[in-house]
Amino acid sequence: MKILICISNVPDTTTKIRFVNDNTAFDTNGVQWIINPWDELALTRALELKETTGGAIEKVTVINVGTKDTEPTLRKALAIGADDAIRVNTEPKDAFFVAYHISEAVKNEGYDMIIAGIDSSDYNGAAVGGMLAEFLGVPSVSSVSSIDVEGDNVSLKREIDGGSEVIGTQLPFVAIIQKGVAIEPRIPSMRGIMMARKKPLNVVEPVEADALTEFVSYELPQAKAACKMVDPENVKELINLLHTEAKVI
């Protein structure tokens, strides 16, 4: 079985969000770039499966649609343990554009399990995984919180709003994952970092593709009014305020 993991390159989760050029662009000054947290969990789980299923998993590949600037992120994925990497050499314009590029790059490569995150922590598109499945004409299983492999069988757990389901699927398919598939993301070891330098990072040139949406401007949320402090000796006052002022209870 061959596994492909889609990797989105995003600002570190503690980044202070600022905009420039009259609020039309995200200020990337001083930003640390990381593997989107979901994608890091997906990679961690894929490597666990590769180690524990006795040869059932042949190869774990990572892919990113992005310019040369995203290579350190792909190298980090290789250092964590991916076997090889693909970079589609273009600036990602929107989810439709990204998913189409991934589908074109991998449609003849025989990946059995393709994993994407439920969303990227920057633009929160929540779209690439499902779109990719549709472009490839394969099933998708979404909000996945656990992945197990036994021989050629894949068993997944899907979270629904009021519970969870166990799902079986034909291969190939796309899993769109969220929390649960792995607990702690793996970090690269010294040896991993050394080995990553020699692993293949294949650059693929882009094709003709459309973007259907365009981000035109940004705003920061309005500052919140100061917190109203209630005397701990008079807790009743809080309930009064919630009842008469906020009118929420």
Binding site: P11, T13, T15, I17, F19, S121, D122, Y123, N124, A211, L212, T213, E214, F215, V216, S217, Y218, E219, L220, P221
Partner: peptide, 14 residues
């Protein structure tokens, strides 16, 4: 919403 609630974006659908 973008940046997981830390900002808003105006987006045009073409």
């Amino acid at each position: 919403k973008v940046f997981t609630g830390k900002a808003f974006a105006n987006v045009v659908i073409k």
